[in-house]
Design a protein around this nucleic acid. Structure first.
Lengths: 211, 211
DNA sequence: CATTATTTGTGAAATTTTGCACGGATATCT
DNA sequence: AGATATCCGTGCAAAATTTCACAAATAATG
């Protein structure tokens, strides 16, 4: 169960399994085999078993997996048995949409603070309840509120400086929506959510498929 | 230069290179070596050269790459020498933010139509100019406007049916923001933009780092 | 209770992806 | 011009990841 030995793709897939399992639980399915789950996720069944094997034995041979139990275990593995506190920088269109998005809170992620540089925005209260703080106060607010994950929804030009603020405030994980490769010190976790990279993949696929 | 032989990660990285190169062009850098570009992208330099080698020879030994030229070539490879027509389903917070997002149009992606089921929304005009169509008319509108990429920004529960509509309208590429694994026929391209999967990765990282 | 049908967990093989290291091409310097 | 330094393109090896295939465990059947 060594941290470094577990591939990042495995973690990503665990997250996908947890989502599929949640849907199954909702449909009141009690037990599922790796074949069925694999089909639902679009993943090879052996892959699922291998992924789970990194963390233990959760199934019963000849039977399958208890949906609720496996879901619980995966969530425990991912660290979703707590609420994670997030802060967001950049209250533009995207930032607003993210803060308003109910999926986050449902999954155990909560925006406890939002920041912007625009003086016209600072001090206002969002429909979702948060008051917009001045970016200058990030360090202090992050420490006060115990922010664990920093979300960057600024334009690309401001993203790196926002990252620096989070870093010096001691935040160790960043979710970056800006289309830029952030420079961060060793040990930080950065995940990029990049629309245009995804679109470029689609464009390539369409272009190739033509021939 | 066989389509199927080129890894998807290579395409993703090409997209990242193109972004870095765009930044460099902006800074008026004329020539760059794979080492420098690699540093900027956080990628191994040999990897960059390998990725490019799939498509041809773009550099000069002992010199490097001409920034503008390489950028042009990568964009050509990805199919970005044209404007791609997108349609979006689901005008919620996220959908609105996406349609308003300037990055898309800047990169050659244009929303030519948006759809919703809510009768209160249908017929209204967005600040970005598009009139909201009734989802029922998707097939017709998609064909009329020549939509090439479908964007799904509905709740998870409506995403699959939105996908079906795009599929039967002949759209071959989907960008899916709903937290669900879409079922699509062979040959379709689907890219998922999944915030919570990314957050789960961060949560796992933080949880592991604790110990 | 033995036989048959499932389905997990896992070693080993197959495949994919990455990274090294070096030949060859280009530029610079003395 | 020759020597030196730089840097691309690529064969090859290493590493990582996926997939196969089967033993072991469980349940169902007659």
């Amino acid at each position: 169960m060594k941290f470094s030995k577990i591939p990042a793709v495995t973690i990503t897939r665990l997250s996908i399994y947890s989502r599929c399992l949640e849907a199954l639980a909702q449909e009141d399915v009690k037990i599922i085999a790796s074949d069925k789950l694999a089909q639902k996720c679009g993943i090879n069944p052996a892959q699922i078993r291998k992924d789970l094997a990194y963390f233990g034995e959760f199934g019963i041979r000849g039977v399958g997996y208890f949906v609720k139990e496996l879901l619980f275990e995966i969530k425990r593995i991912l660290g979703l048995n707590k609420t994670w506190k997030m802060a967001l920088v950049g209250i533009g269109n995207l930032g607003l949409a993210l803060v308003a998005h109910e999926n986050f809170i449902r999954q155990g992620y909560e925006f406890v603070a939002v920041f912007d540089v625009d003086p016209a925005k600072v001090g206002r209260r969002l429909p979702s309840g948060q008051v917009i703080y001045n970016l200058e106060d990030l360090d202090q607010v992050v420490k006060e509120k115990g922010v664990e994950i920093g979300v960057i929804a600024t334009p690309a030009s401001k993203a790196q400086s926002a990252a620096y603020r989070f870093i010096s405030a001691g935040v160790k994980a960043l979710l970056n929506f800006a289309p830029i490769q952030l420079q961060v010190p060793e040990g930080m976790a950065v995940e990029n959510v990049d629309f245009t990279v995804k679109l470029d993949n689609l464009a390539y696929h369409l272009t190739m498929a033509e021939t």
